[in-house]
Design a binder for these strands. Structure first.
Lengths: 317, 317
DNA sequence: AGGGGTTAGGTCAATTCCGGTCCTAGGTGT
DNA sequence: ACACCTAGGACCGGAATTGACCTAACCCCT
């Protein structure tokens, strides 16, 4: 029944806006019997959303489960999420820029027009206040990210080092961020080869290209690109680790501009990573939550020793 | 049928992750016939989500409608949204801090534990890099906001001006942000009166208070609080406007620390607003999208004249 | 310790809906 | 012109949904 699905969504929405609801109130809001509300709650639980309930006084509450339920946002909240994601994508060193862009593409694809305008104006208010250095236009960022995701060609003017402009027609493959910069890895169809473009030098043109079937980027090239990025990026330290987890799993956790992962055997791999401070580098590796060993740099080894000492001293007697 | 609802959600999720899908592919992924997919698409459309379709080559695409569909995020995206919202809530001058906090409460309420940990560590990475001045702990912020939303009592230690600490038991009413600071308006049950607390001086204790029935805050007091905030806040300009829209509507668009709204008649009201620049102030009023008149300050009037001149000159012949 | 309010869940009957299998029409791009 | 895709009608057997009623268990407050 269509009505049932819609009611489940409404119920989920209600449970997200207020923490606690009584069965009777939910029944009234949804226009059904209390018995049906209990059945709907059961349905949500079967779908994996943990609805806790306590008898006595005011009872149903949505808790945190193992999987994230669909988020039902109102207008203001949607705008806040979009603005937040834009600034997060704009960047830094936390390594979530690419996830932010993915989420942003998802959101902006379905964002009602009236809200889109508000996001734009608010963003233009906040950027000049927080930006330090060249930032990339969020509109451009999401447009290119969407093209990568959907395998749609791109046409743009590109300004090279010497200032000359050329028009490119490419098949976008992937966006990677490094510090405050964004790079596009794409197959340049006119030059018939893979190229990387600095996004802040891209001026998108309409119409773009047509849809294309993604071609495999040469593995060695992508890895080579990554090492180049690591060595050329303004990272102060470069670390080498052996991580006891499958290479695929480790690689999925790092943006390609930050780390190079090479498999050693089934359950371990070598990780080469760049970072600006010893703590940051350690943070990256520690966040994996798996055993590892440090090979370089020596300072990091010393640093870890110091940390161990501090931690030990911090223990109660 | 439970399966139908789950399938609709899966379909929505698929349509959000890729822009375009063919009916056959959707049918395969969902494990049903193509006919059923068409029916499901119809159901989504009946629910108000505009699914565009183009015949010929690969066809279904989710567009932007009048209402935001439920967002279905994967783990990384959820973490990105949470981190983005936390920094957006942490502050500034854009006026979306309170929406951010509301969205954040919604998200963190249902965020799986494994993701919560990642949000925390990532946040701790980014804060020391971007913070300038005292920021408020996002955990505290969401906890207090949730208590306001759900009418749950709070117990905390409060550090007053002279450094002395007292334990308070309050019924939280509302959070307001002003610049980088957050204030809690609450009814202090031990002192039996309304108080405002600076959030960065609050140290939450467990357990909190019990649920309470919200009492009406004295209207005059809240308005008085707002004017006090405006005059005491570090705003450089203070503007006075007549806005041709109902007071309730205008008031809903501003955080209370930014603007004071008083009704004139059915369809218009007086707006007193603080801002740090003429452009920012103008932005606030312009964003309403309704007619208005400027009374103060004189500089703003001059500024508007200049802007009009520039805009006029910008017109093509 | 007791009572009121609330969640939980079983059962039953009537209604309604769902999914698959046909079918044809109409559009797009090659 | 042809292949491929979306759109939608008709039909049918099986299955799910809903509301009503009733009982059990639980929590909080007095």
């Amino acid at each position: 029944m269509l009505e049932t699905s819609a009611r489940l969504l409404r119920l989920l929405s209600l449970l997200q806006t207020h923490r606690e609801w009584s069965g009777a109130e939910l029944a009234q809001r949804l226009g059904v019997t209390g018995r049906t509300v209990r059945r709907d709650v059961d349905r949500l639980r079967e779908l994996g959303y943990p609805v806790h309930a306590t008898a006595g006084v005011s009872g149903y509450r949505l808790g945190a489960g193992s999987t994230l339920p669909p988020l039902l946002l109102d207008d203001d909240e949607a705008v806040a999420v979009a603005v937040g994601l834009r600034t997060a994508a704009g960047g830094g060193v936390t390594g979530i820029e690419e996830s932010s862009v993915r989420a942003l593409v998802k959101l902006e694809q379905v964002l009602p027009a009236r809200l889109r305008a508000r996001v734009g104006t608010l963003q233009s208010m906040t950027v000049p206040l927080t930006a330090a250095g060249p930032t990339v236009d969020p509109e451009l960022l999401t447009a290119v990210a969407a093209a990568c995701r959907d395998h749609e060609g791109l046409r743009f003017d590109y300004q090279s080092h010497d200032g000359s402009e050329t028009t490119r027609l490419v098949e976008p493959h992937r966006l990677v961020s490094s510090g405050r910069r964004w790079y596009l890895i794409a197959f340049d169809t006119t030059r018939d080869d893979w190229r990387t473009f600095r996004l802040d030098r891209v001026r998108l043109r309409t119409p773009g290209g047509r849809r294309f079937v993604p071609r495999d980027p040469p593995e060695t090239d992508l890895a080579g690109y990554t090492t180049r990025m690591i060595s050329s990026a303004p990272y102060r330290y470069r670390g080498r680790f052996t991580v006891h987890a499958p290479a695929a799993e480790v690689g999925a956790r790092f943006p390609p501009a930050v780390a190079l992962v090479e498999p050693l055997d089934e359950g371990s791999c070598t990780l080469v990573s760049g970072a600006n401070s010893l703590d940051e580098m350690l943070f990256y590796v520690m966040s994996l939550g798996v055993p590892f060993e440090v090979h370089e740099p020596g300072e990091l080894v010393d640093h870890i020793r110091v940390l161990i000492g501090r931690l030990t001293a911090a223990l109660p007697d």
